[in-house]
Every structure is written in structure tokens, then in C-alpha cells.
Design a protein around this nucleic acid. Structure first.
Lengths: 146, 146
DNA sequence: TCGATTTATTTCGCATGCGAACTATCTATC
DNA sequence: GATAGATAGTTCGCATGCGAAATAAATCGA
């Protein structure tokens, strides 16, 4: 209690994220969709035909991040890249039938994971956690240093 | 309120971790120590001469994880690898003077980051967050599927 | 003691995602 | 219309860390 051990938060967050990713990877290995990929599937499930940049913003990924993700998912036939008719620089992303199927599976898997994530905590506590996680976005912005 | 939006936790965690890592990378880029590397520095600050496997356990890293981390940090002259006198398979890790200096710097940087991480939350709330983060380790164990 | 198993670490191939630099296209300004 | 910027993506090199398989050393059993 005396010398606050809050410095652990950084490590706790790191480990927690890694644990979860590892778990998701192990679970989804069967259908071949990774955690990052399912993120993009969810985005397209909500807004099919989105621009790459928009998808990246939704996932908090920089240009190289989505570019690579889209490459791999296109190669895996989960999504399709089509030129934007109005902008020669831009590409729009669309789910393939396989991608749609993978999304449905991911949704089921995610439901189980969420049940686990919230297990043992009250709704009020989960709200605190969600608020804290979301607060990092404002505290550690993308572009600027302080 | 009706259809619980808890499924966001997975994405929130992912984004939060990435944001923080990105921030730390930007901050520590100057002294050349990354977030993962500072983690190992902290471990060695507490238990210099630890086995690689022990360090990996402390950081929740598998064998390939520490192996690579140690490679890079050895190349950067932050730590030294010395054979264990009692076990021909094992290596013990030691801080170099440069590593010790980097650790001191990392501690200062971490203090600032922690101030930011806890900013806007009560101590009770931070306790909830810490407990939640730690709970993932039990919920998503390393080896077994259920 | 010798072979089988366990344990510590490495290596490989992969996915992820960053910053920096580049290309191509679009938009505004003169 | 030409040209200077802004914008959308790509590419490169890097760090991170996984699972699977390999290597080498220790230990256990018969």
C-alpha cells in the first residue's frame, strides 16, 4: 500500500493483451482467422465496402498495418479489394462469401471470450475497465508528443 | 444498454495496448530501449543473473520470445549472457553498465506513463482495472484448452 | 551404465504493426 | 493549365512473439 505499485499497469496490460491474443490464436487457428483478421471482418460486417483508410482508423491501425492485413486476408480469400470508382488512389474492401462465413464463426467465438472476460466482475466494474481502456486513446494520442 | 456491448472489451484491450506500446516506442526511441526490452531490464534490476527461462516466465514470454529479445539486447550491449556453471543448457542474464543506465532512464519514463495511466481514475477504480487485467492470466491460461 | 525422457534454449516460418520513405492520384492556387 | 501540396496506399526494414521442430544437456529408470 505504501509505495503504490501502479507501475504494474503497463506490464499487466502488456501481458493481458498477449495472453488474450495467444488464446484467440489458439482457438481460431482451426478456421484460419486470426484476431487481427477477425477485427477487420467485424468492421466489414458493419460497413462493407469501406475504404482501407477508414478500416484502418476503425481498428486504430496505420497505413502499413492495414495494408499488410488486407494483403494477407485477400490472399486467404476472406476479403476482396476493389478500386474506388471515384478515386484512383483508393481501394474499397468487401467481404467474400468465405469472409462472411468466417465472420459468423468469429462472432460465436467472441461471445464465449467475452463471457470469460467479464466473468467474476460486476457490470459496474466492467464499465470502469472499459472506461479505463478507452481513456488510453486520449492519453496516448497518435500523432503528437506532449 | 439493452444488447450489452461488452464484446468491445477485446477490441478495447487490443487498441489500448497498441496505443501504449506505440507511445512508449516513440518516447524511448531516443535512448534506444523499447517497451519489451525495458521489461527485461526491470526483471534484471530485481534479479540480476536470472535464467532465461525465469525471465521469460516473469514476462510471460515463451522460449522463442525471450530468446529473440535477449539476442537483440545482447547485440545492443544492454545485457550479457553467461553460461550457467551448473547447467550446460542454461544461460544467465546480467545487466551491463549500459543496461543499468537504460534501466534508470526507463524507470523515470515509466513513472510518467503511470501517472498518465491512472490520471482521472480513483485508486479504487485502478484497483478494479488491475484486478481485471490480472484475472486474464487465470482465464486464458497458457497450455491447456478447456 | 545405457537408453528414454525431460528440460533449456535455439531456429524457422509466420503474423502483426510500427516509422520512414516512396508512388500515384487528387485538389487547390496561381 | 501547370504546379505545389495533400491524400491513399505500398514497400522496406525492423521489433515482437507465437507454434513447431531441432539441439543439446541433464536426469531418471531398468
Amino acid at each position: 500500500m505504501s509505495p503504490r505499485r501502479e507501475h504494474r499497469l503497463v506490464f499487466l496490460l502488456n501481458v493481458a493483451q498477449r495472453r488474450l491474443q495467444r488464446w484467440i490464436a489458439a482457438q481460431t487457428q482451426r478456421n484460419g482467422v486470426t484476431a487481427a483478421q477477425s477485427g477487420l471482418l467485424f468492421v466489414l460486417g458493419q460497413r462493407d465496402g469501406v475504404l482501407m483508410g477508414e478500416a484502418g482508423a476503425a481498428l486504430d491501425l496505420g497505413p502499413p498495418g492495414i495494408s499488410g492485413l488486407v494483403d494477407r486476408m485477400t490472399a486467404a480469400n476472406l476479403i476482396k479489394r476493389r478500386a474506388d470508382p471515384d478515386d484512383g488512389r483508393a481501394w474499397r474492401l468487401w467481404l467474400t462469401p468465405a469472409g462472411r462465413a468466417a465472420l459468423a464463426q468469429s462472432k460465436a467465438g467472441l461471445a464465449e471470450i467475452n463471457a470469460r472476460l467479464t466473468d467474476g466482475f460486476t457490470e459496474a466494474e466492467i464499465d470502469v475497465v472499459a472506461r479505463w481502456l478507452a481513456s488510453l486513446q486520449g492519453k496516448f494520442p497518435k500523432g503528437e508528443d506532449e
